[in-house]
């Protein structure tokens, strides 16, 4: 069967991601979509390790590993340098985790997007500080256990809506993507590559280790996040034009939650509450997209 996924690989085997790592899959898809004329910035995240220790690299593209909070700023500098050198072709891509995007790197990202720096910022979101051992981030969803939200102290705040935060910057392009939807993901990255200005892609990436799920369930769970509306697939151009890419058929969020150890402490009432929260968010998104739904 012909897949509309480019054949060429820009990643080598032998990286050190955990088995079933969603971030590894996400990277593979993104690189396939981007092709070779890129420079990648990787602030501190799981991928700082996954890419391999000196003198190895698992990526076939130039990579600058940088400090945690510098995804937006380092990329700005690279782009400026390329322009000065007369290279208007190479795409600068930042590849950051949720911590480096939602939390510590948010300022630099916001600054870069406000300046409309010409680069693509990709956040692979595994919903906690996984590299350091599963600590909560502002991307950790309501209800989740992490090593810093243990026991009854499970996270009782909502996940920050990073895409909407960037949309508020009137960013040229913002999109969500998911490792279980490779063609959608690749199309979005390709689309972003052909634009100018700041572009943001938020990729949902399962972390089997941190979410307490079997490695073989990585894709299944990622897919369910979309099917349940927990992580809708959509894009926003220029901060105003919303497109919803996938209209789920209404799976219940509890089906998603029940598969994951990080949510095992939640009661039926908690799950009902989360269902309401998800529906509320979904309706809000539909409103923004100009879709009025009776449900």
């Amino acid at each position: 069967m012909e897949l509309s996924v480019p054949d060429r690989e820009f990643m080598y085997s032998g990286h050190v991601a955990c088995p079933g790592c969603g971030a590894a899959i996400a990277m593979r898809f993104v690189l396939k979509a981007l092709g070779e004329k890129i420079i990648m910035v990787i602030p501190a995240c799981c991928w700082s390790i996954i890419a391999g220790p000196y003198p190895m690299s698992t990526l076939r593209v130039p990579v600058l590993h940088t400090a945690f909070e510098t995804g937006g700023s380092v990329a700005s500098g690279i782009k400026a340098a390329l322009e000065v050198r007369g290279d208007h072709e190479t795409t600068v891509v930042t590849w950051a985790g949720d911590g480096g995007t939602f939390d510590i790197g948010f300022q630099a990202l916001s600054g870069a997007v406000e300046r409309n720096e010409d680069f693509i910022y990709i956040c692979y979101d595994n919903e906690a500080y996984m590299n350091t051992g599963i600590q909560r981030s502002s991307s950790t969803p309501y209800g989740a256990w992490t090593t810093t939200t243990p026991g009854q102290d499970w996270k009782k705040m909502r996940k920050k809506n990073i895409v909407e935060a960037l949309v508020a910057h009137r960013i040229r392009y913002a999109a969500t993507a998911n490792i279980a939807f490779p063609e959608d993901l690749i199309n979005k990255v390709k689309k972003a590559k052909n634009m100018k200005g700041s572009r943001f892609i938020h990729i949902f990436s399962t972390c089997p280790t941190g979410w307490r799920v079997p490695s073989e369930m990585s894709i299944k769970i990622a897919r369910m996040a979309v099917q349940t509306n927990i992580f809708p697939l959509y894009e926003v151009e220029n901060g105003v034009e919303y497109t919803i890419n996938y209209r789920p058929k209404g799976y219940l969020v509890k089906e998603y939650f029940k598969l994951q150890g990080r949510f095992s402490h939640l009661t039926e009432e908690d799950l009902d509450q989360i269902q309401e929260m998800v529906e509320e968010d979904w309706k809000l998104l539909l409103r923004k997209a100009g879709v009025f739904s009776g449900s």
Partner: peptide, 28 residues
């Protein structure tokens, strides 16, 4: 002066941007 001037949002980002630029082979 034919230079790119990045008016960043902090000194931290100023230095970070130069790390990116300098790594790309220009005088900063």
């Amino acid at each position: 002066l034919d230079a790119k001037f990045l008016r960043v949002e902090s000194e931290h980002s100023a230095m970070a941007a130069l790390i990116g630029a300098s790594s790309t082979g220009v005088r900063t």
